[in-house]
Write a protein that binds this DNA or RNA. Sequence first.
DNA 1: CATGAATGAGTGTTCATTCAT
DNA 2: CATGAATGAACACTCATTCAT
Lengths: 228, 228, 228, 228
Amino acid sequence: MRKKPVQQRSQQMVDALIEAAGQVIAERGLEHFTTVQVAERANVSVGSLYQYFANKDALLAALVDRLNREMGEMVSRIAPSLLQADPQTLVRGLLHAAFDFLGGREGLYMELLRNWYRLDIQRSLHRFEQQMLEITRAYALTHVADLRLDHGPAKGFVIINSVVFTLLRYLSLPNRALFDRDRLVEELTTMVAGYLSAGRPRNPRSKAATVTRAKPGTGRSKRNPVRI
Amino acid sequence: MRKKPVQQRSQQMVDALIEAAGQVIAERGLEHFTTVQVAERANVSVGSLYQYFANKDALLAALVDRLNREMGEMVSRIAPSLLQADPQTLVRGLLHAAFDFLGGREGLYMELLRNWYRLDIQRSLHRFEQQMLEITRAYALTHVADLRLDHGPAKGFVIINSVVFTLLRYLSLPNRALFDRDRLVEELTTMVAGYLSAGRPRNPRSKAATVTRAKPGTGRSKRNPVRI
Amino acid sequence: MRKKPVQQRSQQMVDALIEAAGQVIAERGLEHFTTVQVAERANVSVGSLYQYFANKDALLAALVDRLNREMGEMVSRIAPSLLQADPQTLVRGLLHAAFDFLGGREGLYMELLRNWYRLDIQRSLHRFEQQMLEITRAYALTHVADLRLDHGPAKGFVIINSVVFTLLRYLSLPNRALFDRDRLVEELTTMVAGYLSAGRPRNPRSKAATVTRAKPGTGRSKRNPVRI
Amino acid sequence: MRKKPVQQRSQQMVDALIEAAGQVIAERGLEHFTTVQVAERANVSVGSLYQYFANKDALLAALVDRLNREMGEMVSRIAPSLLQADPQTLVRGLLHAAFDFLGGREGLYMELLRNWYRLDIQRSLHRFEQQMLEITRAYALTHVADLRLDHGPAKGFVIINSVVFTLLRYLSLPNRALFDRDRLVEELTTMVAGYLSAGRPRNPRSKAATVTRAKPGTGRSKRNPVRI
DNA sequence: CATGAATGAGTGTTCATTCAT
DNA sequence: CATGAATGAACACTCATTCAT
């Protein structure tokens, strides 16, 4: 940002520009938005845009920052009320919140998240993972028996990406006739809640199976038989 | 495609152009590749490119078609050998195959899949889902007890997207120090295999819960703790 | 200048702006300096700049005026002490003064003089010539035998421009390793002092040669054979 | 240059663009010429300009190269016919040639040379000096008695810059009423020829004078008293 | 059919200047 | 009077697409 928007009017302009950028991106797509369009949408001249943002990328970065922040806020808002529920309820609640967040603001977040690798949205996703990890830990403190405690970074990574991109793709579907939102949430709830509970002795009679990789030879050595 | 390449030379040229397009995209990224670059890489003039492809988008569509086809071939190649194994082995095998596929060809598929919404890769993913569904059905015929038979479209959707995008994002990670590929595959295997086995009467006492969505339609606000 | 700065504060501001303009030009070059930079450097707003200068060019004109005045002052300061010396000493003294003047003020004058044709520095140079003419006349009054008295405007023109631009280019040289300042001054002294003394019967035996222009025909008519 | 103009048509285009650039610069001045204007003048689109020149600067560089080359050719064309003449005739001939060259082509060279420090015209001037040095050496071989042989780089530097910039400024004069071209050439001839002959024992009775700098204290150390 | 030079609309960005506060 | 945010015309440069050869 070129100038620190200390004054109120300035901050308003910065906000208006970020907002306008979001709208234009949501409407035209990331690859078709131009600085002039953003300025026009914000009822402002291009020059003003460049008074507050060094360049187009800086504007995008600010928008991503807002996404990042709002994702955090969303989680913080939702989490407390879910800590007393059982795992499925927790997961389902988070999923609905994520759904609402993604579809919100005219699909702005969707277009941004679809471009997670161009913009620096990886950071946002990473922070999201951290928050989920914290929630899981907090949850585990009161529900000792229900969830495994030793969640490494991999579990959070798997869950977040599975959920976010599955939702994202569902919302991007031209035709949602095959199954509705609730069905999707239930499926994801089943999958995620099951995954979170995994590892506990769920079914004592389940036979221990020793399996090897089907196609072990692609350069990965010592992938040992795994006990499940 | 402007002309049906009935002649052999023409088909070769079409192939060379698609191949070149893939290479250039893998190297420079989707947003930085140009038709001239593609033509040069294919040792052909731009004019010839436009002889066979109406425009840039048609070229991209052809590339996506190839992706679509190769994804199908990949699955068909892998599936037969896995039908005898137990669920985890099946899933793990498919995951490793998907991993290899994504990382293959210098990351060409990654760059394409990252742009699933710009190009029309949704079709490819959908076909992929169909194939997975078929595999699951075939598998179920011989492993009746292990997997639920009533997989609707939602389950396939969830699995495919969860897996594909999680792998995609992992491979896009600048730093893979936190956990390695095998760990990720194990986690996904656990999640997916568990999910596929879910629905069977695991906990007889569980159901009989009446749940209502807090605000089922557009329901944004205050989605209250829910009793399941 | 838009307003006559009758008040003291105003005059200070005008001075500060001119000074700031000079500094910015010296640092960034004439083609890269902006009115905003100048205003900031003068601890003043752009609006104020435009209160006193109709536009950018007016500011530059004021700067050139100052250059003009300071060049005059420089000559006036130097001249008196040199009127008693012999021609070479006079010339050498003036050259060193010109050198110091050009290199002074962080090279401000250099950047301005390099742009003698954009800004209206021709006036400054012309005034400079007048001053030199006066000095020569004054000098001739006490050194009748040493210098020709009939210096027309051409001689002053030749000397001033030869000296100023040669010094200017020397100071603009990226590498001054070939010869140092003193050497340059000596050469110029030799040339100029010799030139000023020329016309007197130096070499009685010089044969009268009738020569024709080497390439008389390029559009300049009747340039007749010249008697030397 | 982006593409090697191997073909004739291409070379023509390159030439046309350079020529157009020269014309636009001569008409509008260096700071007001745009790539679009150049393209239009060359009856070509901007895109074509950029097919042959990486950017605006590359176009300017090509123009400067042409200046450089033409200056060299001009000297080579003039020099041979002057080697038999006496010094004044030599100098006068070169001066008239330089005059014609500068004023030629609608003043294109003037505008370029006025910008010797922005463009890389210093190289051209340096090469020009080298050529003059060679001419002087060749001349000295047949006119041993007339010219000093030990011309260091300083002498050439002084002459070239004195002459070039004095001519340049004369041609830039809005009003040439004070003295005409021939007068200027005569004055320069006198000065330069005198300078070139200097150093020879011209006047045995000239008293040796020891002089010190008029204003020695500006930071240049060891500037010793000079023997004249 | 093949070629690749030519096109020109479109984009990001700058900066002299104005004017509401 | 001073301020500095706002303006928008102007410019360098790109690249998908065409078409004369």
